[in-house]
Nucleic acid binder design. Structure first.
Lengths: 180, 180
DNA sequence: TGACGAATGTATCAGTTTGATATATATTTA
DNA sequence: TAAATATATATCAAACTGATACATTCGTCA
């Protein structure tokens, strides 16, 4: 049972908590996983069909009124597959920060442009940080209710810690660039 | 002059500093850019051919002895293209941390596995941090020599700041998981 | 000296994923 | 009631990765 595509693992992970439609899976990713993972419809829907074909997920019709809806659930085989993936070591963690890339080549464009990219980055982080802090508070209040919350909180705390480090860096980086 | 592929911009950025072969471009990425960007040969070589075709880069034969070697350089058009990309706002910064993904679904696998993933992450960061600190020291000593060093230093400082935040988080996360 | 592994160098390809788009219906808002 | 937004599935070209193939040269240890 070799683990291949990450998209399969993420979907199974989400399905291990609750039954979901493809649309809902995308939604969960865009909220809960947003800060460290992402996936597009172009990978989600084909992966769902494939998971069903391989017996790792089941599908059922959940249509209401005229709205078609396919609800997916994890099978026992799917749960084993997920557990196996969770067991094996992490293959790759990666950062793809265009901001840092533009900064690296900053000499070509000059100090002012570099600062404006840092400003934009800082604004984005500042605007997202309160959401993370809010999520952490909510999770802390519900930590006894459900063990999964403990793990969500861990990832949110990661976000908060790194975001605060980013903000410190923004300040220092701008100070360094302005020092002339 | 719409900007399309990121790989073109990274290559032009590297070529804006010095003439390079495809192999050397890959090398530069794997050392200087490693902590916030990456690219494979499968994107580099086709992109180089394409850049030449579009007049953004020039190529010349640099063979020595029996070793074939194609040296690429940036053209004036290439430099304009790079400058335009550096000018426009950053489209996307993204984190893809498999460690956090596995942690998010940690409830399925249990505390011990979660801790072992954090341990592995911590080890990796601890082993890479001295390299970043060394690079920062070297850059600080040469900062007067070359203006580009100032921008390199910025990205290295980003790495150091975030790595230290990661290590703090590792400690706290493990403490939280062990508290039972 | 010679053998063997590591580094230099170019190149391609199957498979994975993104980003955009198409289509259709339901719900909310003005 | 019209328009905008949300729910829902689906596909596709284009981008990119990871692996691999191939050839040569350099370094080093015996």
């Amino acid at each position: 049972m070799a683990i291949e595509k990450k998209i399969d693992c993420v979907i199974l992970g989400l399905l291990s908590h609750e039954d979901l439609t493809g649309y809902e899976i995308k939604k969960r990713m865009d909220t809960f996983l947003k800060y460290f993972w992402g996936a597009s419809y172009g990978s989600i829907y084909p992966a769902l069909s494939d998971l069903v074909k391989r017996g790792l997920a089941g599908k059922r019709d959940g249509a209401e009124n005229n709205r078609r809806k396919i609800i997916y659930s994890i099978t026992e085989e799917g749960r084993s597959y997920l557990k196996e993936w969770l067991r094996i070591p992490v293959e790759k963690d990666e950062l793809r920060y265009e901001t840092l890339l533009k900064l690296f080549f900053g000499n070509e464009a000059g100090v002012l442009q570099a600062i404006s990219h840092i400003d934009a980055f800082e604004e984005k982080i500042k605007s997202e940080l309160p959401y993370l802090i809010g999520a952490a508070d909510t999770l802390k209040n519900h930590i006894e209710m459900d063990d999964t919350h403990k793990y969500y909180l861990l990832t949110v705390e990661f976000g908060i810690k790194t975001y605060r480090a980013y903000l410190e860096w923004c300040k220092e980086a701008k100070a360094m660039l302005e020092k002339e």
